[in-house]
Design a protein around this nucleic acid. Structure first.
Lengths: 184, 184
DNA sequence: GTCTATACAGTGATAGAC
DNA sequence: GTCTATCACTGTATAGAC
């Protein structure tokens, strides 16, 4: 049910996701919605944010922190490309960050990105990159994915997303292998 | 007046920018608004998109096409950083692209980005880059700015925007000077 | 738990006085 | 041109039958 809501908020944004459209798309009546989410729409969106955050924590951040660095980074590229349907699906957190919805969920939004950057930077260090360089590169990657989503949606062209993400991956690999070589 | 509207749509998004909030912030009554925009909110947003597009066409795209390539690219970095208030201001076109507002203005949204990429790629070619490489780099830059806006808003940190844009600029400069050197 | 009916504020939009 | 009043409608939210 929460994944259903997530899809609706993703496509329509917080303001655009009216209760009428939610009931129409999910087939769940208003009564039922308010039974599960007494806090109304605000609570629904909070639950959706938590669900999205949970998915990334489980599938991306935790592996980046704990697993073999190179393997986890490879999995990150694969999982995020699949998650965002190669640019066909928008990032809910990024979309919320852009308008005044941000003020409502500022903590959750910032935490999502901070933890992504920190986890990736840690993995890059373990893969051989320098600390400062790793943080910068992690910021670049996370920001780059958001930009690729915006641009591929704007141009309605998934190829743009794939090209941009591929390039980011190549840049990271080049930088890591160069750092490893200079340490040898 | 249109710039006033632009600021409101930027901050609140299309759905969030209600007529009540527009009249409250601009001090212009509904009667006057409908006098200038008989098509209502949809026409207001269209006018705003056109105004934004006009600004970029005049201040960024035209110089990239016509002026000295290196100077125009330098001006682009300066003007976009100023325009977006170093990440404190969001890109209206990018924000519209993310939710279902996109379907309403798909043509204008795509055109804004296509012309930016084309103009920048042309300037990069004139500055010495190869054609394919220039297009790819232009996509990266435009996408990178959008990503930097999302991330700096999400983290509420203008420093992130500045770092990311500075890095993008350095990458472009390195690539151009390298291409120029290999041609010599 | 789910539905229907409904409350009431807010929506985009219009008409008409000034 | 601008304002006020008001329209029909939709927004979120609630109450109560089942």
């Amino acid at each position: 049910m929460v994944p259903l809501l997530a899809e609706i908020f993703r496509e329509l944004g917080y303001e655009g996701a009216t209760l009428t459209r939610i009931t129409a798309r999910t087939g769940i009546g208003k009564g039922s919605l308010y039974h599960f989410f007494p806090g109304g729409k605000e609570e629904m969106a909070a639950a959706v944010l938590e669900e999205v955050d949970g998915w990334f924590e489980r599938e991306v951040y935790a592996p980046l922190r704990e697993d073999d660095a190179t393997a986890a980074i490879t999995a990150m590229w694969r999982n995020t490309e699949a998650y965002f349907h190669s640019g066909g699906r928008v990032c809910l957190v990024g979309a919320f960050a852009l308008d005044e919805t941000r003020s409502r969920y500022a903590g959750a939004i910032a935490a999502y990105f901070v933890r992504w950057i920190d986890a990736l930077a840690g993995a890059l260090v373990r893969a051989g990159a320098g600390r400062v360089e790793a943080v910068m590169m992690a910021e670049e990657v996370v920001s780059g994915i958001q930009g690729a989503l915006v641009l591929s949606r704007a141009l309605d062209d998934k190829g743009v997303f794939k090209r941009l993400v591929d390039n980011a991956r190549r840049r990271v690999e080049a930088s890591v292998s160069q750092a490893a070589a200079s340490r040898a």
